[in-house]
Amino acid sequence: MAQTIREVMTRDVEVIGPQDTLRDAAEKMRSLNVGALPVCAADRVVGMLTDRDIVVRAIALGMDSAVTTVEDAMTGNVQFCYEEDDAMGVLARMRDMQVRRFIVVNEDERLVGIVSLGDLSQAVSEQRVGEALEHISESAPTV
């Protein structure tokens, strides 16, 4: 029987607000030992902020992390899946889109969790997760 994302996702996800500073976000990432935080306004996901976003979109450009907001560095077009989605289908989407995690929402599109390749390894064979990771890690074609 196929497993759903609800069965493998990480619940109780910490979030950050779009008006918080990058310094606040970096400190939260450090204390939680995570590399990504969903960005929420009220209970709606408006973006995702990764440690790479902070470095590449802000610090490398000389922005001050004490005053630059999360909104200025986050990725706004967030990929998500539903908690009732099939784990194999989500793994295939991750592979095709070359991403390592998805926000998980309920039928009202409210944040209920996050699912990563590591989470999916509970539901899908290690070989399939490994193949997906290999594809995700490939360089994207240049245009």
Rank of each mutant, 00 (worst) to 15 (best):
I5L: 03
E7R: 12
M9P: 08
T10P: 06
D12V: 02
V13A: 11
V13E: 06
E14M: 14
V15P: 08
G17M: 10
T21G: 07
D24A: 05
A25T: 10
A26P: 11
A26W: 00
K28G: 05
S31C: 01
L32T: 11
L32C: 08
L32K: 06
G35E: 10
L37F: 02
L37Q: 04
P38H: 01
V39A: 01
C40L: 08
A41W: 13
A42I: 06
D43W: 02
V45Y: 01
M48Y: 03
L49G: 00
L49T: 11
T50Q: 08
D53A: 13
I54Q: 11
V55E: 12
A58Y: 04
I59Q: 05
A60F: 06
L61Q: 15
M63D: 07
D64S: 14
T69V: 14
T69N: 10
V70T: 09
E71H: 12
E71W: 13
T75F: 05
T75G: 12
N77L: 12
N77A: 10
N77Y: 01
Q79P: 02
F80S: 15
C81F: 02
E83K: 10
M88V: 04
G89Y: 01
V90D: 00
V90H: 00
R93T: 03
R100T: 11
R100K: 14
R100W: 06
R101H: 00
I103Q: 01
E107G: 02
L111V: 07
L111H: 01
I114K: 01
L117N: 02
G118I: 13
D119G: 09
S121Q: 14
A123L: 09
A123P: 10
V124D: 04
V124Y: 08
S125W: 03
Q127E: 15
R128T: 13
V129E: 00
G130E: 06
A132S: 12
A132M: 12
S137E: 13
S137M: 14
S137F: 02
